[in-house]
Every structure is written in structure tokens, then in C-alpha cells.
Design a protein around this nucleic acid. Structure first.
Length: 481
DNA sequence: TGAAATGTTGGGGCG
DNA sequence: ACGCCCCAACATTTC
């Protein structure tokens, strides 16, 4: 019987996994290779590694239950694969395709050397709804604007066909050694992850239950509720999707099924809004595939030399630690630190403050998110930071500067989100919660708030910094013409 | 997937 | 009854 190495990377699931499914008739050996590379520019951060640890644990349990065993190895992927091929006599390596520049470079290299040695290398689609080379404009160029991209995806029909799941697998010889998951040292040495356990269940089962709960509790109001951080109406599937614990096709399938069985009025429109967000994810991955330099350079070359600040460490630290003096910002940054995630609307607000009001380089924000988000994803992170900074695809125009007070009043009017994450302000009435520095002295006093003492004064003047940003962006735009 | 400035409208108070 | 002012509410424009 043919021996196949199924090399798991970011497809940590047994259902709708075409690579695994294609290998299931063979003597398949599931492998995970941990290849930490200190020099890699986008080495996985602490939060991401926390997730990976638990996701691998879940995958290993599932494989064990199916009669197989996850072989964990450490080291350079190509070398480890070579060694495993020698040890096992495997004739093929199957993988799910990845689309970020470093993975493409590594996989291309591996494919070439394996093929030269007569080893079959097969890659399968599964991480995306569409392959990046499938969705193109009439002139065969990649889309740079979302709306036409979305329309083309809709015309093509969002794919919802899923590959059958795997229940039983052949045993893996005990002669093949595996490292212990603990030996990968993916978990933090300092216990900053305590709250993560309350919020997440990494792994395929966790992904499925999150999807089911989202559909049951929030889909029918998604479009109306998704912008309000206190409502928790977003799907929170992003880390599960990032690690491939669930495929976007499974998500589309589940949504369509829910629509076919639901009688609630207006669900279709709400669900359409959710699928649109899923296609935004698709869009960011296609953009990164076609423009791999966007991990570190603006997509819009006009911004190549834009004078974003890269040094002001104190400013950056205040933002990172949620000590900016703007309650909605501080709530978001503290949510991020505590849970490894932040509500989407709040991500836009904090990013706008950093890149526009504070004039800091979008890469500094991207790097902090990269280290702290459990859903850190190179395509999404690069795209979205550039979007906010105004230098990316279909970007927010330079003059679109979020006012954290206005946004807060609009999207957290009753202050539930702020009070949850900024408890030192919790006794302030709603009227003063969004801009506490403007509250009358007696209100502050009776709420136990001392600005500059137990809650910081606002770190910048919103009006002034807004005008500065407008000027800088306008001058740069003019100079580039 | 903005905010702020500016313009317009219409209701109410008031002489 | 009328004009005038104020100003909130909404619309439009500009950055």
C-alpha cells in the first residue's frame, strides 16, 4: 500500500480537508512540522502560538480517536520531510495550499526537490473559497476594489461543496517517533493567557460549535448588530479560519443550510452581510497572493515615502497598553491583551488613532496586532492596516479619520463595552463616559475618577491631530502628483 | 466600513 | 396674522 505523508500546516481539521481525504485510502502518516525561524519577519507571535498549541492538541486527539497518530517534528521543513521519507519509505507528500509569500517560497522549493527525487508532491485547495488566480477582471488582472470583486464572486456562486469528513484512519507505526507537543514550547512562560481559556476553544470541535452558536444566536441580526462591540454579534470564527480548523466552504454551506430552513423574515439580507465579510477575507488573501510585497510596503506606491513616525516609543506604548485616555480605544486595546481578540469596529477605531491622529507607521500597529491577536493572519493584518492607513487596496480615503468619541457614542452608547474593559470609569454616567476629561469635576469626583491619576488624560488633542493628519496626507498626495 | 463645516428647512417663541 | 430670530434636524459639501 502506498505511503503518504499528510503534512498539516494551517488545515488543522478532519472534515472538508481535501488533502487528507485524497490520502485516506493509503497508509497515511499525519505530520506537523514546527519550524521556528527567529529571522523570519512574520514569526508567529505569542497569542498565535497559544492557539496553535491547543489546536494541535485537539488535532492529535482527533487523529488518535480515528486510529491514527499525529507525528510532531521540529526543524526545517524540507529536512524533516526528507528524513521522514527515508524513515518511512513514503512516496508522496500531500498538503493544503497556502498563499502567503514565505509559504509559497518554501513549498515551491520543497515541491521541486521532492519531484526531482521521484516523490509525489500534491497540493490541494481548501483554505479559500476561490483560488487567487480564478477571480480576475475582464483584462485578467487582480481586483483592487472590493465591490466588483464581491460581485464577481457572487456571480460565480460562493462554493459550498465540502469533502466528506474522516472517521477512521490506518494506524501509524510506533517506530515513527514524535516529539511531545509540550516540547515545542508554544505556551507562554508568563501566565498572560489566563483569560484566553474563558473565550476560546481552539480546534475543530470548537470551530464547529462557534459556527453553530453564531448561526443560532446572531445570524438573523448580524448586519444590524455587528458594529456594536457590546453585542458580541460577530462570528469570532477568524482564529478558527486562520488555522483551518474550519474551512470557508463549510461556513458557506452552514449559512445556506440555515437560510433554507429558517422562516425568520429578513435573514437572507443579514446572512448576505455576513457572507460579504467572509469574502473580504477572501479579498485580502487574493491581494497578498498577487502583491506579496504588501506585507511591508504600501500597495499604493504613492505612499512609499509617507512620513509615518517609527520611533516615538512612549506614544506606541501608551496605545499598546490601553492608556491613551480615550475610553473606547483603551477598552479595545485591553480587550486585545486579555482575550487575544478585538471587536472589528474597535480595531478600525484604534488603528485610525494610531496611524492618523498619532501619525505612527501602520507597520508598528500591524506588528503589535501580529503578536497579540489569536487570529493574526498575514493577509488580513497587512491588508486591514493598509486599509486604515489609506495606502492599501480600496483603502479608506486619507481624510477618513475616526473620532474615537463620536464612534464611541455611536457604537457603545450605553457604555457596556467600555465599562467591561475600563472598570475605573464604570461609575461615570453615559453622558461623560466617552470623553471623561470633559466631565464636570463633581461628576468625576462622585464616580471616583481622577483624570491623570487613576485614568489618563487624553494623549492627544483630537481636533489638532486630525488637522495635522489632513495636512500631512494632503501635502503628500500633492507632492506625489 | 467618517467628521466637521456649511447649507437648508421648518417649527416655535415672540414682538 | 406676520416677520423675525433661534435652533434643532437634516442634507450637502469638503477634507
Amino acid at each position: 500500500m502506498q505511503k503518504i505523508l499528510v503534512w498539516f500546516r494551517r488545515d488543522l481539521r478532519l472534515n472538508d480537508n481535501p488533502a487528507l481525504h485524497a490520502a485516506k485510502q493509503a497508509q497515511l502518516i499525519p505530520v506537523y512540522i514546527h519550524a521556528p525561524d527567529q529571522d523570519a519577519p512574520w514569526q508567529a507571535g505569542g497569542a498565535s502560538n497559544w492557539w496553535l498549541h491547543h489546536s494541535l492538541h485537539a488535532l492529535a486527539s482527533q487523529l488518535k480517536a480515528a486510529g491514527s497518530r499525529l507525528i510532531i517534528r521540529r526543524g526545517d521543513a524540507r529536512e524533516v520531510l526528507h528524513q521522514l521519507i527515508e524513515e518511512t519509505g513514503a512516496e508522496a507528500v500531500f498538503v493544503s495550499r497556502l498563499y502567503d509569500p514565505a509559504s509559497i517560497a518554501r513549498d515551491t522549493n520543497i515541491k521541486t526537490t521532492l519531484t526531482q527525487q521521484g516523490i509525489t508532491y500534491r497540493s490541494f485547495a481548501g483554505a479559500l473559497l476561490f483560488e487567487p488566480w480564478q477571480i480576475l477582471t475582464k483584462t485578467n488582472s487582480p481586483y483592487k476594489v472590493f465591490t466588483p470583486f464581491w460581485q464577481t464572486c457572487q456571480k460565480s456562486g460562493l462554493p459550498s461543496d465540502v469533502t466528506p469528513g474522516i472517521r477512521s484512519l490506518p494506524a501509524v507505526s510506533t517506530r515513527i517517533s514524535s516529539q511531545r507537543l509540550e516540547d515545542l514550547h508554544l505556551l507562554p512562560t508568563l501566565p498572560w493567557d489566563t483569560q484566553f481559556y474563558d473565550h476560546w476553544q481552539p480546534g475543530e470541535a470548537g470551530a464547529q460549535s462557534r459556527l453553530r452558536r453564531f448561526i443560532k444566536e446572531h445570524l438573523s441580526e448580524y448586519e444590524d448588530a455587528r458594529d456594536f462591540p457590546a453585542q458580541g454579534a460577530t462570528s469570532a470564527l477568524s482564529p478558527h479560519l486562520h488555522f483551518g480548523e474550519i474551512s470557508p466552504r463549510q461556513v458557506v454551506y452552514a449559512i445556506e443550510h440555515a437560510l433554507n430552513t429558517s422562516t425568520a423574515p429578513g435573514v437572507r439580507k443579514q446572512a448576505q452581510g455576513f457572507l460579504r465579510e467572509l469574502v473580504w477575507r477572501e479579498f485580502t488573501h487574493h491581494i497578498l497572493y498577487h502583491f506579496p510585497h504588501t506585507t511591508h510596503k504600501p500597495l499604493n506606491p504613492r505612499f512609499e515615502n509617507f512620513p509615518w513616525q517609527t520611533r516615538r516609543n512612549k506614544v506606541l506604548r501608551q496605545w499598546q497598553q490601553g492608556q491613551t485616555g480615550f475610553p473606547i480605544i483603551d477598552a479595545g486595546m485591553r480587550e486585545l491583551w486579555a482575550t487575544g481578540s478585538m471587536h472589528n469596529r474597535v480595531r478600525m477605531i484604534v488603528a485610525s488613532l494610531l496611524t492618523k491622529n498619532l501619525g505612527m507607521h501602520w507597520l508598528l500597529g500591524a506588528k503589535w496586532f501580529w503578536d497579540t491577536l489569536v487570529d493574526a493572519d498575514l493577509a488580513q493584518n497587512s491588508f486591514n492596516w493598509q486599509w486604515v492607513a489609506g495606502c492599501g487596496a480600496d483603502a479608506a480615503p486619507y481624510f477618513r479619520i475616526f473620532n474615537p468619541v463620536t464612534q464611541s457614542e455611536k457604537f457603545d452608547a450605553d457604555g457596556i463595552y467600555i465599562r467591561r474593559w475600563v472598570p475605573e470609569l464604570s461609575r461615570l454616567p453615559n453622558k461623560y463616559l466617552h470623553a471623561p476629561w470633559l466631565a464636570p469635576a463633581e461628576e468625576l469626583h462622585s464616580a471616583g475618577v481622577v483624570i491623570g491619576k487613576n485614568y489618563p488624560a487624553p494623549m492627544c488633542d483630537l481636533k489638532h491631530t486630525r488637522e495635522e493628519a489632513l495636512l500631512a496626507y494632503k501635502q503628500h498626495t500633492r507632492a506625489a502628483d
